[in-house]
Design a protein around this nucleic acid. Structure first.
Lengths: 99, 99
DNA sequence: ACGATATATCGGGAAATTCCGATATATCTT
DNA sequence: AAGATATATCGGAATTTCCCGATATATCGT
């Protein structure tokens, strides 16, 4: 758990927004219909909502994943991203104890 | 409370280290003798321990203060910095609720 | 196998951050 | 008032981040 890497990942308005959107996939991504939401939300949906290019959003999701804040599942041609709640709990705990 | 600004302030190894040092001023800054630790630790002590230049450390402390993570007290020619614990509690809370 | 679709990766220009040395400002001492 | 000390601010080189368009890769349907 690289603390600096985590905080860098959180240091961007769009990435922070994506994480917040992913707290409520059904509410924030009503267009998605494939496979429900059990595996997360696919990149295209997130990209459309973020209003940035596909490459940028894909890169941002990689940053979030390298920091451990989200996890991904590939199903067919789609990659579904969802929050890694354990990481958020650990980070909140870290802030109360170590930092 | 600008969340992105806070996370940016935390996105640096040295700044994070300073915040951790400030959790235990007596233990981490034994050289300081003026005015005790009630008002925090002065810039020079932090600078010596951080091993960066005076200007860099002064700037880093400003960044932390703008983010609300520390507060400062000027006494004579010294500026004492201490943690703003309310900000850390609020941030930890934010991570559990909003983000 | 071929074209369409979804995502990842590459290369890069613009902006921000990192950290420095030099200098300015504020306060203390004499 | 003058010099010493502590901190803040300025200007800048090197690095990183932001976000893009172009391209590569993977999987789908036919």
């Amino acid at each position: 758990m690289d603390q600096v890497e985590i905080f860098k990942a959180l240091s961007n308005k769009t990435r922070l927004q994506i994480l917040i959107w992913l707290k409520d996939p059904e509410g924030n991504f009503p267009d998605q219909d494939q496979y429900g939401f059990d595996n997360g939300v696919c990149v295209g949906q997130i990209q459309k909502k973020a209003g940035l290019t596909q490459s940028t959003v894909s890169e941002y999701l990689s940053v979030l994943q390298r920091a451990g804040l989200v996890k991904s599942t590939r199903i067919g041609q789609w990659t579904y991203y969802q929050r890694n709640e354990e990481a958020f709990a650990a980070l909140s705990q870290l802030l109360q104890t170590d930092i």
